[in-house]
Design a protein around this nucleic acid. Structure first.
Lengths: 332, 332
DNA sequence: CGATTGCGTTAGAGCGCTCTAAATCTTACG
DNA sequence: CGTAAGATTTAGAGCGCTCTAACGCAATCG
């Protein structure tokens, strides 16, 4: 009752096991007659090659292991699509494991992938610390996507957060804003680069930066906005650490009786699903996520196939998606 | 330079390969001394068991294959967490493949999983048609999650969409609404049950149902709402096929100068991320997604371990999450 | 003190496949 | 018709692991 093997198919087709193997890997040196016979037998038996056996015999798996920080987060989903499309092109399977926003789980996921003998590891927004990544990349080519850190040993694909922040600032300034507050990402990994970019851009335009502590979700924005309202120091524009924080800003501003963008303009970051919703319509900094995924595969493949060994670091340029949450400031 | 094998470890620890195997599977019949020696050797060599070899030898993989309709969709993410948590409890690994909203891709994903010899298939919101599912479930235990269809051969975990729709209607009626329009999901798989539930609930409360053709995204809502506005037949409440359609309704209503919930109440379905955003704050029907994931595992495990063979069908009760998009109708 | 028990350990076959080297069959040509 | 060159096909080893059966040895017992 167990699944048919190559042996079974060979017998049925009246050929040797080796011949079946050749057919399954569609080798050109098989006569048409036998090929048909084998395919027919396989079909009838519902034969399916056993990947474990194949991988063992070949000593390679043509499989890549991807770990996603959090499957909830739609930001990463787009990266996944990029990765899959590119992997497909090169004939690799991609196994996905969910990190669940937890370093320990990610560590176990790495372990699982390694036991599956994946040929490379793609870490999307990993929570792992440097040591973990170094350790992993010593075993198998590893590429880190969308995590600003410097990852010794691994390749890195990022977008330039400083530049992204500058885009936001420039856009607001062009609209006529001069009083622009930034709500940062607190301990978040990309927070530093974004705040820094914001501050640098402000200063270079002769404006005084004002950064408030935020975080990475709606509630974090609320505190900051309430503070601005209470101290009567509401700016004409707010640049938030990410779209979710921007969403929090939107609702808190509204609750305070302020209209977006009439009273206050709001800019987010990441161009997630949220920003696209008509009801939110957030102007936001866009990262080329699909491309990031594709580059991750290319990069890692250079190691596998062309055995490059020095680490690569690709830093892509973000763009700005302008929507309805930004407008010129109300005339004073 | 290739990875160390059991043989290598055995040699280093001065024991036989079989003994190393016993240690790796932490068998109780190994002397403490040898166990330590083996673990130490393995540690030093950075040894990692080769799952392919193990699976081949054991003729079982302790691995489940999951296919997600669309990794973008946060609705499914929660199911994934439920599945993973339960699978963890039973010591199974879960391999995730992305269906990408495409039946053909899903078909390939099924194939890949089968070649990996997964012990069961978990299809989350599959696009596959009945035949595909029958075929898959003939090979390996299969459970379909969140897809209303009747899946001969496979187990099914759903929530009762009719009841969910009724919850929405009842809530609106309790608030005092009598003129409630439903924007349906067009060809979407769950659309029928939801519309039917809506119509049944309306009639049983002595109200006249009014169903408009919608779809599954924001744009689909727009057409319907514009139509209502133009024919001057705007109801006091709208029950949308899902949250995204509800979001479309929100923005279109607003664009038409109507306020939510003051002029029109809106109810969504699925309690996705969107609904939770403060700025949207959608009243919506909630499906116990995490639980659905867990039940999927339990169900499928009954087949694997207790070899049940008759198909099971579990239909869970939805709940209503009330937020700020619903309120009593404006006094006429 | 020889036989028995049982624990700890190991030899060796086998899981399903690929791959190399060799065998077999065709075909073409002098 | 004989033979070399191709074109097909196959035997068989080996991938890294598990598992059964058997082995060695110390402790136990009559």
């Amino acid at each position: 009752m167990s699944r048919p093997t190559m042996e079974t198919v060979a017998e049925r087709a009246g050929v040797s096991r080796a011949l079946v193997s050749l057919v399954m890997n569609n080798s050109s040196k098989v006569s048409e007659a036998k090929r048909q016979a084998v395919l027919h037998a396989a079909e009838q038996l519902g034969y399916r090659p056993n990947l474990h056996a194949r991988n063992l015999a070949q000593a390679r798996t043509k499989t890549l292991g991807m770990i996603i920080n959090d499957i909830h987060n739609p930001f990463f989903a787009e990266v996944v699509y990029g990765v899959e499309a590119a992997a497909d092109d090169y004939g690799f399977d991609v196994l996905i494991l969910n990190g669940g926003r937890d370093a320990e789980r990610e560590r176990r996921a790495v372990e699982t992938h390694l036991q599956f003998q994946v040929e490379a590891l793609i870490l999307v927004g990993p929570k792992l610390d440097n040591d973990d990544i170094v350790r992993a990349s010593a075993v198998v080519p590893t590429v880190v996507v969308a995590s600003g850190r410097d990852n010794p040993g691994a390749d890195t694909i990022t977008t330039d957060d400083e530049r992204g922040a500058a885009l936001a600032v420039q856009h607001l300034v062009q609209l006529g804003h001069t009083d622009i507050v930034h709500i940062d990402g607190a301990a978040n990994i990309s927070s530093r680069a974004r705040s820094h970019g914001y501050e640098k851009a402000m200063r270079s335009l002769g404006l005084e930066p004002r950064t408030l502590r935020g975080g990475d979700d709606e509630a974090d924005a609320e505190a900051a906005i309430v503070d601005l309202a209470e101290t009567d120091s509401m700016p004409t524009a707010i640049f938030a650490f990410n779209d979710l924080v921007a969403a929090g800003a939107l609702s808190t501003l509204e609750a305070a009786g302020l209209r977006v963008p009439d009273d206050v303009s709001v800019v987010g970051y990441d161009n997630t699903f949220i920003a696209e919703l008509n009801h939110m319509s957030l102007t936001t900094v866009n990262q080329p996520r699909h491309q990031m995924g594709q580059l991750a595969i290319r990069t890692v493949l250079e190691r596998i196939e062309d055995d490059r060994t020095e680490p690569t670091r690709i830093d892509l340029a973000p763009t700005l998606s302008v929507r309805r949450s930004t407008a010129p400031p109300r005339k004073a």
